[in-house]
Structure formats: structure tokens, C-alpha cells
Amino acid sequence: MTVPDLTLLHTSPVHVPVFDALRERHHPGAVLRHLVVPELLDRARAHGPSSVAPALLDLLSGAGPAGPGPVLVTCSTIGATAEALAPVLGAPVLRVDRPMAAEAVRTGPRIAVLAALASTLAPTAELLAEEAGGRPVSVRTHLVAGAWETFEAGDTDRYLTRVADAADAVTGADVIVLAQASMAGAADLVTTGIPVLSSPRPGLARALVLTADP
């Protein structure tokens, strides 16, 4: 039986080399197909995440050469909307931050969420509550000032430094969640003793398991 390709849906091209590097390092031989559609995030920010559902359905219905296959959505803002389309698509859809959220609630009840984009905060908090499954959790959200503008300007080093500095300033938390995949590199720059979680590596690992599911 042929193992299906994994389609990755991105709203920024910066994610493509990140996930390709993870594949080379941890999953050699896995076949990744990248779709990059920045307009989806623009629309979700302007009109709400649910507004992108029709466009997502059109995109993902034709994503694979043999029809829909497993999909990993790397944008946290539209992740829940995409996951909800799985029954219609007839294929598994995973938001990249779900495995990270599951690890966060296992780590401790006091969770600090850092995001560069305000539209990411509510979906991430909702995901953490969902993964907690009724267990009490306290989620504090932090918007990293100036980070998104730096990201859009293409200054990745400064962007990650801003995120790392914000993580180092967090107190009273059991775990820190970097809500956006683009923040992952900041985890290597922090000096805090609080665990800092990012989404690309666990998200890709879980999504590749889906390609092997019957």
C-alpha cells in the first residue's frame, strides 16, 4: 500500500524550510507537499477564522494528486476551522499546535501563551481548554509587542529575540507555549527555567503518523 503524501498548509513561506529541515532530521523519506496561501490569514484577521472555511475546503479537496489526504495546518489562527472540515473532506486534518497543547496541559495547570499576532490568542486558549478535558487550567495570554511587525519585515533574528525576551519575562507559570509555528526558534534562545514549548516538531511527528493510519 502506498503511504500518502502529507500536505502542509501554510500562511507564510517561512515555514517551508522549517518543516523540510525537520523532515530531513527526524523523518527521512517522508514526502511533504507544501501549500502556501497568505491570503487565508489576511481574511481570517479581517473577518474571523470561520470566514476562510469555503476557501479551505476548495484548497484541500484538491490538495493531493489522488484526492484529499492527511493535512497539517501550520497557522494557529485558522487551525480549528480547518480541523472542522475533516469529515467533509474525508481525510484527517491536524492543526500543528494540537500536540503542543496536549503536552502543555500535561506539564502543569498554569500556562502562559505567547503570540506575535492577536488573532492567535483566542484560538490557542480554546485549544488548551479543549486538551485539558475538564481539568482546571489557568491560561494567561501575552501579545509580544512589535513582534509581528518585525516578522513581516523579514527580520527573523530580531523577531525571535523579541519572543525569547518575552518568554524570559514570564513568571508564575508551569509552562510557556509559543503559539505560532514561526516562534519555534525562540525556544533555543531563552534563559528561563520554565519549559518552553513550540509546535513544529511534535506537530509534524503526529501528522506523519496519520499518513500511516489505515
Rank of each mutant, 00 (worst) to 15 (best):
V163W: 04
I194G: 13
V175A: 04
S199E: 14
D188C: 00
V190N: 08
T141F: 00
R135G: 07
A173P: 02
E130W: 10
D168K: 03
A184G: 14
S198R: 02
P200D: 14
I194A: 06
S138H: 12
T156S: 15
V177Y: 04
R158C: 10
L160F: 05
V175R: 01
T171Q: 08
T141S: 14
G146F: 01
V144I: 11
T191P: 02
R158V: 13
V190K: 01
R140P: 07
V175I: 11
V144K: 01
T191R: 15
S198Y: 09
D188E: 15
P200T: 09
L197V: 11
E149P: 12
E130H: 07
G133C: 02
T191V: 15
D168E: 09
A167C: 04
A169F: 01
M183F: 05
G134L: 09
V139D: 01
A166H: 08
V190H: 09
P136K: 03
D155L: 06
A145S: 14
A167M: 06
M183K: 03
G146W: 06
G185D: 14
G134T: 05
A186W: 07
V175G: 02
A145Y: 02
W148V: 09
P195E: 09
T156E: 15
V177K: 07
G154L: 15
S182G: 03
V137E: 00
A153T: 12
S182C: 08
P136V: 01
T141R: 06
M183G: 09
D165H: 14
D157R: 12
E131F: 00
A179V: 09
A173F: 04
D174T: 12
P200M: 02
L197R: 10
R158W: 00
V196E: 04
G154F: 04
M183P: 07
P195R: 03
V196M: 11
S182I: 12
G146Y: 12
A132R: 03
T150H: 01
V137P: 00
V170G: 03
A167Q: 10
A184Y: 14
V163F: 11
D155I: 13
L189N: 14
V177M: 04
S138A: 15
L178D: 06
L160W: 05
A164M: 07
L178Y: 12
V196R: 02
H142G: 08
T161L: 13
V190P: 05
P195N: 13
S199L: 11
T171W: 11
G185K: 12
L160S: 02
V163R: 01
G134R: 01
A173N: 05
T192W: 00
R135N: 05
A147T: 14
Q180E: 15
D155N: 11
I176H: 11
W148K: 00
R158P: 01
V144R: 08
V170S: 11
V177D: 02
A153M: 10
Y159A: 05
T156F: 05
P195G: 09
V137M: 00
L189D: 06
L160I: 07
A153N: 05
A169C: 10
V175Y: 12
A179G: 08
R162H: 13
A184R: 10
I194P: 13
E131I: 02
A166S: 11
V190S: 05
Q180C: 12
T171P: 06
A164I: 05
G185N: 12
H142Q: 13
G134F: 08
T156V: 14
G146N: 05
P195Q: 09
A166Q: 04
A181I: 07
E152I: 13
V196W: 02
Q180N: 02
G154H: 01
Y159D: 06
